[in-house]
């Protein structure tokens, strides 16, 4: 029954126009970045290497598909949560708004099962978005710009990673990025269990992300104790995969914290939906 209901939920997502807004916007954004890099990518590279240009010269193909993929991931991983929340924030509240939640609750499936099937559908949608992001940024960028070593910028300076060392890092970073987006999807679903229309959960999800991100970037010691436990701190954990030496302990820590968030938010959603007085 869970599988059948999950299939129905996936069909619901597939028939909604808003599901394609996310994929369409993602595709458009990536192609805009690709076009911009094709037109004026050299100036971006110049900005990266400018601090050293007086003394050193950088030889080889710096502007390549791997760098473009990294730039795209860095730019979009901030905005993709909105596109995810657009769909997943509607999953439970949308039923309430359209008055179908009562009919759904009469089906021979438990309320926990309903939440699970919607959560699995949200997971599949998030997975598709992440895969699409990875495909466009990696394969299309490589096809357009060729391949090569990757220059990574961080506040310590420049790190150059050899081309042969990048494949597994991109795959692993997409898995961690998916985990971060999955947390956002579960958060939106949790808000969705509390709301009666879909605008509230979407706006609430984005508000939480913006609020936590601002707290995370504030260099104020009063927030230092809570920063390591905020999921937004770990949403950029995918970037750590492009560090050398590989910060395994920190990445495991991020994975654990994101997983704990997913489990906790899903539990809240189940408890809330089970206790919900369905009156619509």
């Amino acid at each position: 029954m869970l599988l059948k209901n999950t299939y129905n939920e996936l069909l619901k997502i597939a028939t909604k126009i808003r599901s394609y807004i996310g994929i369409g916007a993602l595709t458009l954004l990536i192609f805009i970045v690709l076009f911009a890099m094709k037109a004026d990518g050299k100036s971006y590279v110049g900005f990266v290497t400018a601090s050293f240009e007086q003394t050193l010269s950088f030889n080889g193909k710096i502007l390549n598909g791997n760098l473009i993929a990294f730039i795209i991931m860095q730019m979009l991983i901030v905005h993709v949560p909105l596109l995810i929340a657009l769909v997943t924030g509607d999953l439970l509240s949308g039923e309430e708004a359209s008055g179908t939640v009562r009919m759904l609750a009469t089906k021979p499936i438990s309320r926990t099962g309903i939440v699970f099937s919607k959560w699995i559908a949200a997971t599949v949608y998030t997975l598709i978005m992440t895969f699409w992001l990875g495909f466009l940024s990696l394969f299309v960028a490589k096809w357009m710009f060729g391949t090569g070593d990757l220059i990574v910028l961080n506040s310590n300076g420049l790190l150059i990673l050899a081309e042969y060392d990048l494949g597994w890092r991109f795959v692993f970073s997409l898995i961690v990025a998916f985990l971060a987006l999955w947390t956002v999807a579960t958060l939106a679903l949790a808000f969705s269990a509390f709301a009666k229309n879909s605008v509230g959960p979407i706006v609430s999800t984005m508000s939480v992300i913006i609020l936590f991100t601002i707290i995370g970037t504030l260099d104020v010691s009063v927030f230092d104790t809570i920063k390591p436990f905020m999921f937004t701190t770990h949403m950029a954990a995918w970037r750590s995969i492009f560090e050398d030496p590989f910060p395994l302990r920190e990445i495991i820590e991020s994975v654990v914290i994101l997983t704990v968030h997913i489990v906790a938010l899903l539990t809240i959603t189940i408890v809330r939906f089970n206790k919900k007085d369905i009156t619509s």
Partner: peptide, 9 residues
């Protein structure tokens, strides 16, 4: 160079 090589200016 195939990869990125840093040389003195």
């Amino acid at each position: 160079s195939k990869g990125i090589a840093i040389l003195p200016k």
